[in-house]
Computed example of a mutant assay.
Amino acid sequence: MSATACSSNPGASPNSGTSTPIVTPPKETPNDNEKKPQEKLEALLQKELSQTKDVAEAVGLTERYMKGVTTEQADQMFMLLEGFYETHLQEAEAQVSNPEVQQKLLQLKWPITLEQASTVKDTELKDLMTNLLKGKYKLESAEGMIFPVVDYEALKSFQPNVSKPMQDYITLMADDSNRPVAKDAGLVISREELIQRTLHAEKFLTSYPASPRYDRIKQLYLNELHMVLFGLDNTPTYDWDSFKLQAEMKQELQKLAQDRENTLTGDMVKEFLAVLKLSKDQLYVKDQGEQKDVPEVRAYMDQMEQRVDTLIRTRTTEG
């Protein structure tokens, strides 16, 4: 897991009449998808994306190439755009991290929108903000710093083109980009919402085990499950002095295991509680003033991903 849409220019359909005069055909554009071998479109888009560093242009190219293609091709194109973000995110961060830019951005009203960007008098800042926002980034702030993140809510504009699994993937990613689970080493959403997000990620994994985005959502799921069980440094599920699971958290986990007994998450929590029974609810122990692992708990954590994979294979609904 560290810039909305450009307008497209649809190609003209060929005239099928026989009485019209012969004319020179228009120059082929990326929108004339019916004129190109379908299997080559993804490679053509990839080539064009590799030749630009402009994120707004990258989004526009992807939108144009997606017109009239199959959902399978649209999925590949969407992932190519994600690859563009991964390659160029550091460049976008560098543009925004300039101290002068930071000061100017901090003076603006949040959240920063395209409409607000259009009113900025500083031409360079205006162009930077407009390009990032049209490229489906959004600006976030933490610890006094402003930085760009991919705005998956804006990327929902691609959902009509892609497959149902990819639509659901975008929705999960949008939930995370709209309201991050954690910030500054602490949970910033309710534990109830955290549990619901964990269950939503689980549903994706069990519904679409063949998805090319399975591994990404599995990592999201494992991160969220870990937060359900252990919390975070600033919002732990255990007492900081004794490293023992808090009584109210134990009750919450017991209820979760009972209410969701037929789910992957319910099974994982049930197994975790069995481990804690052996450790007498100790998630860690204090040894000469230092936090040390409990062997049984460490073993559970080390095999968590493998156990998730095993349980998913027994309950998948695809194939």
Results as ranks from 00 to 15, higher is better:
S8R: 05
G11T: 02
A12W: 15
K27S: 14
E28N: 11
D32P: 04
N33L: 09
K40W: 11
L41M: 12
E42Y: 14
A43V: 03
E48V: 08
G60N: 02
T62S: 09
G68S: 13
V69S: 05
Y85D: 02
Q95I: 00
S97V: 04
P99C: 11
E100R: 06
E100K: 10
Q102K: 08
L106S: 06
Q107S: 14
P111D: 08
L114M: 15
A117L: 11
E124K: 09
L125R: 02
K126L: 06
L128W: 04
M129C: 12
K136Y: 14
K136A: 06
K138I: 05
E143T: 14
P148W: 08
D151Q: 02
E153K: 15
K156D: 03
Q159M: 06
S163M: 05
D168M: 04
I170C: 01
N178W: 08
R179M: 14
P180Y: 00
P180L: 11
L187H: 03
L187D: 01
L187E: 04
R191C: 01
L194G: 06
Q196C: 05
Q196I: 00
R197E: 08
T198S: 13
K203R: 15
F204V: 04
P209H: 07
S211V: 02
R216L: 07
K218R: 13
E224Q: 13
H226G: 14
M227R: 02
G231P: 10
L232Y: 13
D233C: 03
Q246P: 00
E252Y: 01
L253C: 00
D259E: 12
R260H: 09
T265H: 05
D281N: 14
Y284G: 10
V285H: 12
D293N: 05
V294N: 06
E296R: 12
A299E: 08
M304Q: 13
M304R: 14
L311Q: 04
T317S: 11
G319I: 11
